[in-house]
Design a protein around this nucleic acid. Structure first.
Lengths: 152, 152
DNA sequence: GACAATTACTTGCGTCCGCAACCTTTCCCG
DNA sequence: CGGGAAAGGTTGCGGACGCAAGTAATTGTC
């Protein structure tokens, strides 16, 4: 069985990609820290703010965030304690809990978002041409589609 | 202060990128699990295998892996217990410890590498054209360079 | 040549999160 | 309807890792 190694071009792409990802997430995390938010916390707030009624079922939120049920429970614990999110029981199905944005959460997100967006822009998009950004969208749309088509 | 939001193109690129990254790493992790290796463990073995004498100083390895000193100590503990790596004291500087690949580690890497490479190829490069791979290399080289130029 | 500053690594402690087990509620099907 | 299967969520447990503190060795400075 001939092992298909990576070509030099692929190797370069892969290494730069891997290294960029970890450095980038560390930098974004860092930029967000002054607001007392984790990147994960921020993602929760964003998802909720985009949802109807600013609320989502726990399991839907977990799926969206690629988090295990228990992981989401814990992450929410923190946000609830911080007063940014509240748990609301569903009247129609007594198994489900909604995670709902509070006023505090809405304010916090509005406060942090401009900085975070600037952070993404400065650290990621800054040196890239318009074409490259478009290409990037195409590439990762392909990757994402392929990944969801062939799950682990 | 006018907040510079993300354009639609940027938004698409960013979301696809973010989602791809987490799904991809989960998939790679999964593919590597049968060998009893974490993606992190695998990275250690690769770095060591590429180093002179198949050994590196702890602090250099930590930097390369973007890991804190304590994080590396713990990760190495596991690899040492598994017999894949050994700690070797430096004769010239008694503060430093080398992490050195053992025969078992070399064998394990040779065993896991083909599968891992196939995994990367199938899950990441599969649907991309030659040009896209090249472009990807350019893009993330730019990003990486920019990130190291402007540390957090 | 001694003492402060620096470097290399480890350990204690706390956080985040996944897995498995568990409880509750709802659904499905005969 | 009634009982088993499935779905939604939380908790106990354990692994991985970062930060701060601690130890040991080296370097730099006067």
């Amino acid at each position: 069985m001939a092992t298909t190694w990576l070509s030099a071009t692929e190797m370069r792409a892969w290494r730069n990609f891997i290294e960029s990802v970890s450095t980038l997430t560390a930098a974004l995390e860092n930029d967000l820290a002054p607001f007392g938010l984790t990147l994960g916390d921020y993602e929760v707030l964003v998802r909720l703010s985009e949802a109807d009624d600013e609320r989502l079922r726990m399991c839907d939120l977990a799926t969206a965030l690629q988090l295990s049920p228990s992981g989401l429970t814990r992450r929410l614990d923190g946000l609830v304690t911080a007063g940014l999110v509240e748990r609301v029981a569903s009247p129609s199905d007594r198994r489900v809990m909604f995670a709902a944005l509070t006023t505090g959460g809405r304010v916090k997100l509005a406060e942090a978002a401009p900085d975070h967006v600037a952070s993404v822009r400065n650290r990621f998009f800054k040196g890239l041409s318009r074409d490259q950004v478009g290409e990037l969208g195409d590439i990762f749309e392909t990757v994402r589609a392929h990944l969801t088509a062939c799950p682990s």
